[in-house]
Design a protein around this nucleic acid. Structure first.
Lengths: 167, 167
DNA sequence: CTGATAGTTGAAGTCAACTTCATGTCAAGT
DNA sequence: ACTTGACATGAAGTTGACTTCAACTATCAG
């Protein structure tokens, strides 16, 4: 029994599973919209909870907050989003997950053929290969998608290897 | 035709695909060992290239540099590691990748059952569920392994939800 | 011997996504 | 009215894995 059906930061946080600070952070980024009381405190509509569920789901799938913001910006202004709206936004996710699974599977299979030899060749080993070597017909050249790769800064240094680093 | 078969930072970097700065960083962390010239410059043995291949492979599989350091510390001191040594170190990786693949697959399958409804229920939706809700028999409760999860700070806030946030 | 090229250091910066802190204000129950 | 707990803000801190910078110094081909 509240005076209205608007929710405070604390209530939103408790019911969504996000920390208070994360809620304020998202508000600051514009991912959430809040009205303010006369005293300046945030008050959220209940639909904010669904928005937060979307945010968590998107992040689990691997989207950055920037991508989430872009997606949310495409929601129709003025009315509360419908199920169809949310569904539309998450359409691409399956494909994204498929890609991630495929990349990991290829990596694992490459590992299977590598693990017995211990070679870890910089040219041939699927599991240690950076993102652009071994392009030509290596049997299991496996690359992680950018989001999963631990190899983020590969834009400046093109790796072309012409010699075998034999130990 | 070099004066010896020792490699400079630049050569190591070029041939391994890592940046110079990363090589020095790894050296500082103790992941690599280098001798020094009279003038103080690093000189690496060729086996360092294999070590770096291992590091990249490990990072692709999802290990942190701390884990890499621990693994490398278990290599026998005094002699150049053999293939068997490298193989031993990467034994657990297949299992690790299997776990990651399984988690992503479960997430995708949860998505399949969610995507039509647009519900994104904080209780029921496998894809938006944080790490401890929906434990009891939800059909596709999917959780990402810690390394893939975008939800790192789950230690302090246990999420127990008892009400449906209907928008 | 002399440049050019490549190497050295420590400190500080970057990025993402938040959290923590200090200090101060609001709201609500009694 | 008062007290308590929640909320407000801006700035700074956190983590991991590096990168960038400034100011020097080493190496080597010619």
């Amino acid at each position: 029994m509240h005076s209205s059906d608007l929710l405070t930061v604390g209530e939103i946080a408790r019911r969504s599973g996000f920390a208070d600070s994360a809620i304020r952070y998202y508000d600051r980024l514009g991912l959430l919209t809040a009205t303010r009381t006369a005293g300046g405190q945030r008050r959220f509509e209940r639909s904010t909870l669904r928005r937060l569920a979307f945010i968590r789901a998107a992040r689990n799938v691997g989207l950055s907050l920037d991508e989430v913001a872009a997606a949310l910006a495409s929601l129709p202004a003025g009315r509360t989003p419908t199920r169809a709206d949310w569904t539309r936004l998450s359409r691409g996710w399956r494909h994204r997950l498929d890609d991630q699974i495929e990349a990991l599977t290829a990596l694992r299979d490459g590992l299977d053929s590598c693990i017995g030899c211990g070679c870890l060749s910089l040219q041939r080993c699927a599991i240690s290969n950076p993102a652009d070597a071994a392009r030509a017909g290596g049997p299991g050249a496996a690359y992680l998608p950018a989001g999963l790769r631990r190899d983020h800064g590969d834009s400046r240094g093109t790796v072309r290897m012409t010699q075998d680093p034999s130990s």
